[in-house]
């Protein structure tokens, strides 16, 4: 299994690629089940994107879904998508992660989009694409782990060590742009594992690292294994204040 997964219709995807494919290790979005957009929802979206850094984690946040909202259409807010902002969740999932068959293949490989349709019968095309999709799904299909909001918020932590550049002896560029690693600055919080000489691949957020209630911070990639083959889905029903970092 590979940790890399394909995400389609992304702004950062090449214009030469009709699917605008980007391969991420993870990706971040914010879904909303409410019928009307409200201030708290927008705050939540912003918070999610900022919280997780560069919108690279899929964060499905069920924002205070109530029984009255059970028939509401879920809308997905993806800051990096080329689709509408927002896009209805089902449409978003199909166009971003796969096809109507539920398999992780580019939308342009959907049965009725094949140029061969003009030459072959629909049945043959379906058979061809079914086999093709199965192979692709087997090779690069993604799995999604759905996590209850309460447990996600209770257990998730990050020390941002995944944002640290791989050490290189003769590369003196890209020092911590804040220059405050290990200083305990009030405005710039550094990961617990970061030392003064460590370098960032991108400027780190200025807010605290996310820690659990037990004030535990882990390296983001510490538990990385080759068995990873999924994007993170965190189903959050908790209110926005729970996103705040415990102090």
């Amino acid at each position: 299994m590979s940790q890399a997964v394909a995400v389609f219709q992304q702004r950062t995807g090449s214009d030469d690629d009709p699917d605008h494919t980007v391969v991420w290790d993870y990706h971040g979005i914010a879904p909303l089940w409410r019928r009307a957009l409200c201030t708290s929802a927008m705050c939540m979206i912003t918070r999610c994107a900022v919280l997780l850094g560069h919108a690279t984690v899929i964060l499905i946040a069920k924002s205070q879904r109530s029984s009255a909202d059970t028939k509401a259409v879920a809308m997905v807010y993806d800051l990096d998508t080329r689709l509408h902002f927002p896009t209805e969740a089902t449409d978003y999932l199909k166009k971003t992660f796969g096809t109507t068959t539920g398999q992780a293949v580019p939308p342009r490989f959907a049965p009725y989009d094949l140029p061969a349709r003009r030459l072959l019968s629909v049945r043959v095309v379906h058979a061809y694409t079914s086999v093709y999709c199965c192979v692709l799904a087997w090779l690069c299909g993604s799995l999604f782990r759905v996590v209850p909001a309460r447990e996600y918020l209770a257990h998730f932590a990050s020390d941002r060590s995944h944002m640290l550049a791989v050490p290189c002896d003769d590369d003196d560029d890209h020092h911590d742009p804040n220059g405050a690693a290990g200083t305990g600055s009030a405005d710039v919080q550094t990961p617990a594992v970061a030392a003064a000489e460590q370098k960032w691949t991108a400027p780190p957020p200025k807010y605290d690292c996310i820690r659990t209630k037990g004030n535990v911070a882990y390296g983001l990639w510490n538990a990385l294994s080759l068995s990873n083959h999924t994007r993170l889905i965190a189903v959050c029903s908790a209110p926005l204040p729970l996103f705040k970092t415990p102090r």
Binding site: K94, T101, Q103, L143, V147, E151, G219, R231
Partner: peptide, 28 residues
């Protein structure tokens, strides 16, 4: 628990044993 624990599909991931999760494919 860090992000990769959540993302991990490993069935023997000790960090996930105390968390209720469900693994789905796209259709699900």
């Amino acid at each position: 628990m860090n992000l990769m624990d959540f993302v991990s599909m490993s069935a023997d991931n000790a960090a996930l044993k105390h968390v209720h999760t469900r693994v789905m494919d796209l259709a699900q």
